[in-house]
Simulated assay, not measured.
Amino acid sequence: MRELTYYVAVSLDGYIAGPDGQFDAFLAEGDHMAPIWARYGGTAPTRLAEAVGLPLDDSPFDTVLMGWNTYAVGLPDLPSPYEHLRQVVFTRSHEGPAGSEAVTFTDADPVETVRALKQEDGKGIWLCGGGSLAAALAGEIDRLALKINPVVLGAGVPLFGGRGYAPRQWKRADVQAFGSGVLLAEYARA
């Protein structure tokens, strides 16, 4: 069965973006980049990866899931950000823009959708954001891969937004520390 991995950059205080969706405080350069790409290749937007010469064919994922706000970060320039992956965007009130024909927009129940995807053949499923979608899918997430950045945002989009108090245990799978201050912390569902 396929696994759902929530792979995302996060601040020390648990935010995946600023209050208006900003993510420029996260480190985009440093000694963490190459090792993390070696582990999680194929997780950059297609055009960006091609422009900087990053290979896209050795990804642990063949499907990417995101909420509308995560998807909309690249608009209008990237209506199909991950052309090399099957793209699913969960939204209740938006339709796809021109050029987004390779993206599936759905208002279906995220849990039912993920359960169906897990039954299909293929590689892993990547949840790249946002926090509210992660909260809705918390019971379906098999692995957490957190790029913990050495920054405190103070406010923004929480890692699991709107979840409320609902403790869940995870077991550490691996932790890598880099000179840049970034930690790649990986956890499996306990």
Rank of each mutant, 00 (worst) to 15 (best):
L137C: 11
E112I: 00
V114S: 05
L146D: 09
R168Y: 08
G131Q: 00
L153R: 07
G99I: 00
E120L: 03
K118A: 02
E140M: 10
P97A: 01
W126F: 05
P158D: 01
Q119E: 14
G96M: 01
I141Q: 08
G131A: 05
A134G: 04
G164D: 10
A135F: 05
R143E: 15
L153D: 12
P97I: 05
R163D: 01
P110V: 03
D174A: 15
G154E: 03
I141F: 08
G164F: 03
D121K: 15
K147H: 06
A134K: 05
A108W: 01
D174M: 14
A116I: 14
A138M: 10
E101H: 02
Q169T: 13
K147E: 13
V111F: 07
S100G: 03
I141D: 07
E101F: 00
W170C: 14
A166T: 07
G164C: 07
L153E: 10
V175C: 06
F160Q: 03
D109L: 02
Q176H: 15
A155P: 09
N149P: 06
L146Q: 10
L133C: 10
S132F: 04
P150R: 12
T113F: 07
T113S: 04
V152L: 13
L153W: 05
D174S: 15
I125H: 06
V111H: 09
F160R: 02
A145R: 05
I125C: 09
V103M: 03
D109M: 05
A108R: 13
P158V: 00
G156E: 11
D121V: 15
V114H: 05
E112N: 02
G96H: 06
F160L: 11
V152I: 14
R168S: 13
C128P: 09
G124W: 09
L144H: 12
A145T: 02
R115D: 13
D107T: 04
I148N: 11
T104Y: 04
G156D: 12
V175S: 12
